[in-house]
Design a protein around this nucleic acid. Structure first.
Lengths: 235, 235
DNA sequence: GGATTAGTATGACCGCCAGTCACGACATTA
DNA sequence: TAATGTCGTGACTGGCGGTCATACTAATCC
């Protein structure tokens, strides 16, 4: 539920820009078999990175576990960073966008949608922590070169639909219109990301973030956070 | 100007907790010679990390450039991560705290202090970009283990004095008191950090953050940002 | 001052792992 | 079957973080 940047996700599968991390030397039309193998690798990598972290993850272990040669993985993804980037994308794409909430929630408006997701995220994490952990790694646990690619991706896809969400808020008269919409979006993304990290890190990486967090008090915290956020970007 | 956590920096040089990154096997009273050598290494490391990034920095290069054996560096700092942590601490400690502003600014109140530093930071960065770049690396360009130590440090030292600063704001009646002060501090830290990153990244790491930023418009952005922040935690 | 010892400096060496590449297996076409 | 392109492979390499036996220096003692 966090991202930064404009909503540019217009059509599916826009060509990602070439880069060291994204050699993309595959044939133009890979064919279903290769695509399937590629997907298998990404799935396993997701789990592997989630379990070991970025640096401690060993490509060779991954390849052994998959029954695939190490060389193949590099052929598909170019580098460890490239593989991680694909895993990260898959993780983030698996998260719901703000507007993917039930319609009766949507009718209640902007801030109720936020509340819905904040309350919900805890359970989502518990059900499947793997993509959340990989997202955490991507946000804080890689080097700047990779982080740059990640930000580029978030900017291009806006996977949580923050821009559309803010637009809805403005249209409903719930979100202030005297401030540049992109700045609103950024602030929403920043604070939501950090707040959720603080809520979830207990399970994802104990000790990563300072933790005044008694889980029982999370609901109260969420309410306070929403109050502040409403003051910031509301009305 | 950003940190997260309580203001615990009570006395100088509180014992940092032992850890893999902080073996601290030095003698209890190192003597001035060793302290000087240690400081020399940290200084050079600061520059070296700033120039090359965390992963691309080579301890051996650093040691050659210093005329010091590689083994010595590991003897002093235990690991590359330990060395970086020290460099990061030094960088962050070199930044001014919120309340270090001129007294006539302080008299103008909480939000004017923020404005002062936001306007000021750009120039500070230009004058000496090295610590800012290292802080950026520490925030986004290391692995989670190191990031954990960094957060622990920020929590323990509160190097920007955010807690005292918020306390002042509350005392002056400028900052809302209906919300847990620690949450206010966190939100202030989160947003200030990200906003400054967005402002400064142009010079520190072009392309790291999405950049709608025409430098000429920075002042307008700062004003809008302050408006939002005032709504969030003001009155 | 010489001897003993504790603290400090050194750089050759080791283990590890991302990334490479020559070769082999396989598929496709002729 | 031969020829040609594609895909898969794993032994190998390069480079770097980290170690440690040895050398050196400074302090301490008789």
């Amino acid at each position: 539920m966090t991202a930064s940047g404009h909503d540019l996700r217009s059509h599916q599968r826009m060509k990602t820009p070439r880069s060291v991390l994204n050699p993309d030397v595959r044939t133009p039309n890979p064919g279903p078999r290769l695509e399937a193998k590629r997907a298998r690798i990404v799935d396993a990598a997701l789990r592997h990175f989630a379990e070991h972290g970025y640096h401690a993850a060993r490509i060779e272990d991954l390849s052994a576990q998959l029954g695939v040669a190490k060389g193949s993985i590099f052929q598909y993804f170019g580098s460890k960073g490239g593989l991680f980037l694909e895993a990260y994308k898959k993780a983030v794409r698996s998260f719901p966008a703000y507007l993917d909430c039930p319609s009766q929630i949507r009718e209640k408006g902007f801030f109720e949608i936020l509340r819905y997701w904040l309350l919900r995220t805890e359970r989502l994490v518990r059900e499947d922590w793997i993509p959340y952990r990989v997202a955490l790694l991507g946000n804080y646990g890689v080097d700047l070169a990779l982080k740059r690619e990640i930000n580029r991706f978030l900017l291009a896809e806006d996977p949580y639909g923050s821009t559309a969400f803010v637009r809805l808020g403005i249209a409903r008269g719930e979100v202030r219109s005297d401030i540049d919409a992109p700045l609103i979006v950024s602030i929403l993304d920043w604070t939501m990301e950090r707040f959720q990290d603080a809520l979830l890190t207990e399970e994802l990486d104990p000790g990563l973030f300072p933790h005044p967090a008694d889980p029982a008090k999370n609901q109260a915290r969420i309410n306070q956070f929403l109050l502040v956020l409403r003051g910031a970007i509301g009305i």
